[in-house]
Amino acid sequence: MSSDLLPQIDSPIFCRVSINNDEKWVHGIITYINLDKNIAEIFLSAKYFKSYFSEGSKIVIKSLDENCETLFTGSVSKKVISIRKQAITIQISKVLSYNNQRKHERFRVNYSCRVRYEENISYIANISDISLGGGLIHSDDFFEEGRKIDIDVFVTPKITISFTCKIIRRIANKSGGYSYGVQLANIDDENYNLLSELIEYLQTQKKHLAQEWNMFNRLKYSVYAISILGIFLLIFVVFASKAI
């Protein structure tokens, strides 16, 4: 990543944002980053500005491209929503970059799920991250790393996606319980089709954000153009009145 990056409108750099270590991640677009000055600006959907973000909040941003994942932490120094800008300014405190080892893009979700860990024994959990290759499970119960588990994800009251995963990582949460990184091990055709449809739907959410960003920029430049035209019109009227 260059030290001063201004992406083009037709190729946004998507990122995921978490405030104060919240497990809820939201999508954003990096519109400016300067690593020499430790400053970045993130475009976000207008619906998050009222209550989700506040100045001084600790923030984590993950940006992923084909070859590298960049993670940087910091704090929100400013949030602006106006005709000129709809973004939060980040004072960066730490930057980490590493090779992207993931084969599939991950998406933030918030679904209840059932973990079938042993025969005739199941546990209620929550899945906050999902992809075609696995996900991130949160549970108050302890499961062994390396163990295969069956998971039923309750997407809607009528749609459940079931598959078998292997626990590849376990992290104890500060608030209690555990977060489990799971890798997809086995899934039948019917459930794979359901999972693929879910991923396709989640991808549209990113497209909606990109559309909102494009609409915001078009509106901003339209206002600029109208303002400039109005100034020229005013000057013309003034000179015309003097000529008369």
Rank of each mutant, 00 (worst) to 15 (best):
L202H: 01
F142T: 09
C113S: 14
M215K: 11
S93G: 07
L132M: 13
D152A: 12
S122W: 01
I149W: 01
L219D: 14
I92P: 00
C113F: 12
L202F: 02
I199A: 07
R170Q: 11
D150I: 04
S112Y: 09
E118T: 12
Y117E: 07
F154N: 03
M215C: 11
R102L: 12
I127N: 01
Y178Q: 05
K148L: 11
N120D: 14
V155M: 04
L96F: 12
E212A: 06
R106S: 02
C113T: 12
S131I: 03
S112E: 11
S139L: 06
H208S: 12
S162Q: 14
F216R: 04
Q205A: 14
Y201N: 10
I167E: 02
L194I: 13
N191T: 08
D152N: 10
E197M: 08
P157E: 02
L209K: 04
N100P: 11
E105I: 09
R169N: 10
S128V: 13
T160Y: 08
K220P: 04
L132Y: 02
R102K: 15
L195M: 08
N99K: 14
S122A: 04
N173T: 07
Y201A: 13
I151R: 00
N126D: 06
Q203I: 03
I130L: 10
G135V: 01
T89L: 10
I167S: 01
R170F: 10
H208M: 12
E200D: 13
S93W: 04
E119V: 15
K148W: 04
K166R: 15
G135Q: 00
Y192F: 08
K103I: 06
A210W: 02
N191K: 02
N191M: 06
S93A: 07
L184C: 05
V95Y: 02
L132F: 06
V95H: 05
L198I: 09
I137P: 00
E212Q: 10
Y98W: 05
I130Q: 04
I121E: 10
N191V: 06
Y224Q: 02
V109I: 14
Q101S: 07
V223D: 07
G134L: 03
T89Y: 14
S128E: 06
S112V: 03
E118D: 13
L198E: 04
V153R: 00
